[in-house]
């Protein structure tokens, strides 16, 4: 699963590259924030609601053409991806505005929701 996700990330990178010279402090902040969020008791019902924003683009089925599949990915990877967009480590304007105002509770809820989704 982990390998598959990184393959998907590689695809996603076409649209949203990890910056060649990402601010080291941002990368460190992602790591720190991830640990905090992993400790949150996620509200799955809230996550299901928030996911409405995501599933207008990210599909449960089909090939990840243009937009990666996020359903069924590990919680930690999902949290990392959301934080990287929020903190500017990865750039894609759509993802930047979607994540800009997500708090820790929202990120935990979204990650828990999508990690639980399977085809």
């Amino acid at each position: 699963m982990k390998l598959a996700f990184h393959a998907v990330l590689a695809l996603a990178a076409l649209n949203s590259p990890v910056l060649a010279v990402a601010d080291p402090s941002s990368i460190q902040r992602v790591g720190e924030a991830r640990e905090v969020i992993l400790g949150i008791d996620a509200d799955r019902a809230y996550g299901e609601y928030l996911a409405g924003d995501c599933v207008a683009c990210h599909r449960l089925s089909g090939e990840p053409a243009g937009i990666p599949i996020i359903h069924g990915q590990p919680v930690s990877d999902l949290i990392t991806a959301l934080l990287e967009y929020k903190l500017g480590v990865r750039t894609n304007e759509v993802m930047s505005v979607r994540t800009a105002r997500l708090g820790d509770q929202e990120i935990a809820a979204l990650a828990a929701h999508f990690a639980a989704q399977t085809k």
């Binding site: 599933v55 207008a56 683009c57 599909r59 089909g62 990840p64 053409a65 243009g66 937009i67």
Partner: peptide, 8 residues
Amino acid sequence: ESVGWYAG
């Protein structure tokens, strides 16, 4: 991305 969005 737009093609992916349409499918989504």
